[in-house]
Every structure is written in C-alpha cells, then in structure tokens.
Design a protein around this nucleic acid. Sequence first.
DNA 1: CTCTATGTTTAATT
DNA 2: GAATTAAACATAGA
Length: 264
Amino acid sequence: MPELPDVEKVRRELLAWLAGAILTDVRANDARLVRPITPASFARRIRGARVVDVARRGKWLRIELDGGARVFSHLGMTGDWVARELAAPDEPHERPRFDAVRRGTRRSVRYVDARRFGRLVAARGDIPEWTELGPDPLADGIDARALGAKLTRSARPLKIALMDQTVLAGVGNILATEALFRAKVDPRTPSRAVSPKVLSRVTRALEAEISRELEARTRCGHEEEAPSFAVYGRAGEPCLTCGKALAHVVLAGRGTTYCPRCQR
DNA sequence: CTCTATGTTTAATT
DNA sequence: GAATTAAACATAGA
C-alpha cells in the first residue's frame, strides 16, 4: 500500500478524522509496532492530548498534538489507517487504535498492518528517521540540480539511488519503476552516468507519475480505485509502447521490471 | 509446497 | 573506511 501517493492519501484522511479531536483513549497493543518502548508507555505519552495537525514527509506521517508530543507513523509494507465507530468499552483491542472525540462526535481510528513492518513512535521532537529524509517531491518539488549532485556520488543503479530516502523522500519500488519507464531510461544505468538531459526526463517523469497516482487515489472520494501500472507487476507481458516482452531483474534485492527496447 | 510482495535496518562481503 | 548486497523481519496471496 504505501509509497508517497498512498501515504499522502492516508495523511488527508487522518487529518479529516482527527484534526481538533481529543484522544480520549489510546491502545497500542502491539509491542513490535511501538518498540523499543512498551504499549503502555506509548499510550501514556499521548492519551488526553488534542490533535493539531497531520504532516507527511516521504513515507513518514507525523501526527502533531498540543503540548508538543508527536506520533510518527511509518506504514511499512502493508500498513494503513482506517476509521471505525467508537468501539464498545469491552471490545478487545487487538490492533493499535486512537479513540477520539471532537464536538461530541466519537471516532476510533485504527492502525492495521498484516506484516507489521510498520512502526509507531511517540516523541516530543522530530526523530532522526524524519529529519534525515531528503526533499519530498510533492511538498518541495524536485530540484534537478540538487538531485544530479547526489546521483554523481554513486555507481549504484539509478533506480536504487532514486529509492534512497535521503536522495528523495517517498519514492518506492513502484514509483521508481514506473517513472523510469516513463522517462525511457534503463533502471540499471549507473547513477553517476546520468546526463543532464536524462536527469531532466527522470525528474519530469517522477513528478508526472506522482501526480497521476495521487489523482487515481483521490478521485471519487472514498471509492477505492486500484491504480494501474505500465510495467510494475507486468514482467513477461508485452510493453504497452512497443510490444516487446517486459524484462525482470533484481537490483539490490528489489524486483525491477522494464522494457529492454524502450528503456536504454 | 514454493515463490513473490508497495520497506527498512542490520549483518556480511567486497 | 566506504560502498554494495544479502538477510531478516511476518503474513497473505498466486
């Protein structure tokens, strides 16, 4: 579920559900998710506070509370936030949840995560995972010159460099795969071999792909629309541009699909 | 049963 | 040391 467009959609939902609300109860019954502190300690730090804002940087969410506390949320591979009616007091709370009340309206906002690769962090300042992120392509735009400077420092494949969260925050396997197809650039190209011309194509492709995916998730409000991809998940199938079978390689442990004819 | 999966951190290797 | 890659994490679905 989570790359920049997915996380941005979750941010907007959380904002709508929680802005101005008071966290009347917090349950975080998942030691793995809140490690290294305990669920009880996590709940103690934020229970009773009022939600002021929900921010996003890359794939990280930051729920800001009055009094200075902050909750950071990373969705890992399968994490998501969902809204439910407030549970009955005796309902088992197998999943982390924030029970919130605002102007008499009660809501329970819950974190679900099948694989539990995600994390919840309660802190008072910003955490290193947040401050060490590179520029966010949606919030900050992509500065082609700054990006180029970072790319020249490494020989690793371009796709892997784009997924480095200190290079650009929020670009994951799908965005990188789709953007490189859109830019007609081989994902294996050594990062430092990228010319200014190619760099500008990649920059525009990333921006276009981010807005396309964000739009697909925002359209029709609540209606879940599975975004379709030109190459991701289509290995062996014909390229939509030239018809040649799409190739699949593994780069730094991540599956990578590309068109051997169009992307050079 | 085997393989793969939208991510990150840590260990191992070059 | 620095750069890069593999392994590990836990679960669902094809």
